[in-house]
Design a protein around this nucleic acid. Structure first.
Lengths: 346, 346
DNA sequence: TCACCCCTTGTAATCGATTACATGTTCTCC
DNA sequence: GGAGAACATGTAATCGATTACAAGGGGTGA
């Protein structure tokens, strides 16, 4: 392109566009935000002027005037966890398609206090909040909502109990049931579970689902066979040590996450216990690595991308006032049967 | 709709605080932005009023007035890649500590065009740009910089050649050398490489480092032993098929990423080739899974967190005008010797 | 005591867009 | 032909903070 007068020109503004197009600033603004209100010819003239000047709206000014930011803030418990980044990816795509931006905050090690959250969603920062962190206390959360009554919130993946917000989540109950059933059909009767962090909803729901299904089927299940953990590889490794010390152990383990399963299998293998010949291990999430892990991991697949996508749609509907009810979207999951589970040994 | 007398109270503004504290808005603003300019007593009164009203600045208004956004935009090639999310995590922490927000954009499948980038950094969206995507063309990038001369840019992890911006990256050259040397010391003489995407700087740098080191040592290395790929598990799997069809194959493979190594090992294993007994395989990055993979992967560790952290500091220095030169920060890496590599078979 | 400076604070302009309201024009239908 | 709707456009107020400039008061040195 040809170089325009290399003036220390400041960015073009609506007035500049208006002058060149021979109209008022109001008209320029209308062309940009509500084209139908303007006649075809004027519209063309304005668009030409926009192109000529290279005009782009100043977001800050627009945000101030319209009292919105066209940005959504995502609260992630742990950005380095690939599981969450997948959801973010889906989220970001849908938001961008709708001309919204994505702000990201890592809540870090400690659950956010209401003070911190308040600061994060302080006036004008974001039009809505997508919470992926279920470890926030219900009281803290209620306080934040009271302080920011106008800030729409949607939960994705995790959630906080007793809070009235739309929530997108996987069918955790169904997933765990599928796992238990699958193992049951393979002849397993003694079941163990490695939990996520006890304070986490997902961990709780999955454990409860595990326990009630095993009970329904009449399987064997003991207190010490439900091992506390925290979704991490290390938790799986630690669990393996406890398993090694058991005089009587389950033949089938259901882990609250794939990472736990990886750690557990690694630990068991090191201890000379073969998976799946001696014991079956299943995970939950179907993260990318499950397929190449050795042995490939039996697990529950949930679509993280879709979760992000749905959460984005939900929050936009909320913002646009198209919906008001705290709907709960439960996304279907399915069992992926691989080699880490097999028939029960006898 | 039932319009409830919800909150007759709109968010408090500077004027409200000013009235309560018995001062002018200018003084309130000074207390908040430049406390030293105000006497102790007035300051206390204002702070008390701030607390009483629960006042929080309206970002949009401040941004408009100060012509800044206190936000940084990160351009990520693929958010779902755990490797990047780790960098983001470090980035986010440092930025938040300095009261900056992090905006994230996934550049998606295709490299961004200059048009898209222009839109992304359009006036007032962000004060700076952190680019993690090295696949943007040099021409596109130059155009964007020309259009937005005032937008500071820092590269992290990846970069675009011939662009004058600070850049934070791992010691890729040194890392690959360490790998080659390590394998050489283990008696390997025939070396293969599975590349990242040919258009990616990192992939190029790592391949070049591989080739020149092998050459320096006088190792054996052939055209068909350098297999094109794209950093993914699938690329590793595909490479395994090609290896299976070779009449003569290397005894040691260096992969451009851990994920490639996972796929390669999985493929080789399936084909009945044992790692590390028949062939050694090394990765690059030391992602979390390497440790529990079977066999645990020999690889090069680079600190993603630190990379994010350094990038954040670099961009803030740029924004604050404390630095102006396009410094290149090379972060040290180290070899992590695990079980996927061993002595050369004979 | 005066002149000058420094410290503290207030007044009011300003950032750049959106939009309520006003105005003018054209069209419709009786 | 005229009342009124429907449309197109312009004028100017407005969003909420920051900050240039002005001004008042107290201290200092000659």
């Amino acid at each position: 392109m040809e170089e325009k007068p290399k003036s220390p020109r400041t960015a073009p503004k609506v007035v500049d566009v208006a002058r060149i197009a021979g109209v008022s600033t109001a008209t320029v603004s209308r062309v940009l935000n509500d084209p139908d209100k303007v006649s075809q010819t004027t519209r063309d003239a304005v668009l030409a002027a926009v192109k000529e000047t290279g005009y782009r709206v100043n977001r800050a000014a627009r945000n101030l005037r319209t009292n919105s930011s066209r940005a959504i803030l995502a609260l992630v418990p742990n950005l380095s966890n690939p599981f969450f980044s997948n959801i973010l990816s889906g989220l970001e795509r849908e938001l961008n398609a709708q001309d919204y931006s994505l702000l990201v905050t890592d809540s870090g090690d400690a659950p956010l206090t209401s003070d911190q959250m308040d600061r994060l969603i302080s006036a004008g920062q974001a039009d809505g909040l997508i919470v992926l962190d279920g470890s926030i206390s219900q009281a803290d959360f209620a306080r934040v909502q009271a302080n920011n009554p106008s800030c729409p919130v949607v939960f994705a993946c995790e959630w906080v109990e007793d809070v009235k917000c739309p929530s997108v989540r996987a069918d955790n109950l169904g997933g765990v049931q599928k796992l238990v059933d699958h193992l049951w059909e393979n002849g397993h009767r003694r079941f163990g579970h490695v939990m996520g962090p006890a304070s986490n909803v997902l961990a709780q729901v999955r454990r409860d689902a595990f326990q009630s299904r095993v009970q329904e089927l009449g399987g064997d299940m003991r207190e010490e066979w439900t091992i506390p953990g925290d979704f991490s590889i290390d938790a799986g490794r630690a669990a393996a040590e406890r398993v090694g010390a058991m005089t009587e152990a389950p033949t089938a383990w259901i882990c609250a996450s794939d990472q736990i399963a990886f750690g557990l299998i690694a630990g068991l293998t090191r201890a000379g216990i073969n998976v799946p010949n001696d014991v079956s291990v299943a995970g939950f999430d179907n993260i990318e690595m499950t397929e190449v892990f050795n042995p490939p991991l039996t697990t529950i697949h949930q679509s993280r991308n879709q979760m992000g996508h749905s959460a984005a749609r939900a929050i936009l509907e909320l913002i646009r006032g198209q919906k008001n009810d705290a709907e709960i979207y439960i996304l279907p999951v399915h069992l992926v049967d691989r080699d880490s589970t097999g028939p029960a040994p006898r």
